[in-house]
Design a protein around this nucleic acid. Structure first.
Length: 113
DNA sequence: GATATGACCGCTG
DNA sequence: CCAGCGGCCATAT
């Protein structure tokens, strides 16, 4: 497993309950501001990592772009709603209010192991 | 070994 | 303000 993937999983696992973040935010936190796609790809591989709440990771617009990759297209939305996040038309309502930025919440760069 | 694709993001027209 | 295109990095074929 690439270290990049491990880092992504580590960050995603640190997402607080009822909070969401974006691929770009994670990528930027890992030092790869242009590798947002890789974060998404890592999420794809995250299927082997049940401990990774991929449903809390959405795109910059708060759109559930990856919901199609879940068991059911509605599973992702259900999980988010279960956490108190309102989802409408595959988009998180008040996304900015639920947004969790690791760059401003977690330490600069000294996590994982 | 090279080409194509992808759960994205940002800029330019 | 809305729409379209390219870039970037890693994985899969």
């Amino acid at each position: 497993m690439s270290q990049f993937f491990s880092l992504v999983y580590t960050i995603v696992k640190k997402i607080p309950f009822g909070r969401v973040t974006s691929y770009g935010a994670i990528a930027r936190y890992l030092g790869h501001p242009r590798s947002a796609r890789m974060v998404g790809y890592a999420m794809n591989a995250a299927h082997s990592q049940p401990k990774v709440p991929a449903h809390r990771v959405v795109n910059r617009k708060g759109l559930l772009t990856g919901k199609h990759h879940f068991s059911g297209s509605k599973l992702m939305q259900q999980l988010l709603e279960s956490e108190g996040i309102s989802v409408e038309n595959d988009q998180i309502v008040d996304f900015e209010d639920f947004f969790w930025d690791p760059n401003t919440t977690l330490p600069p760069f000294e996590i994982e192991v």
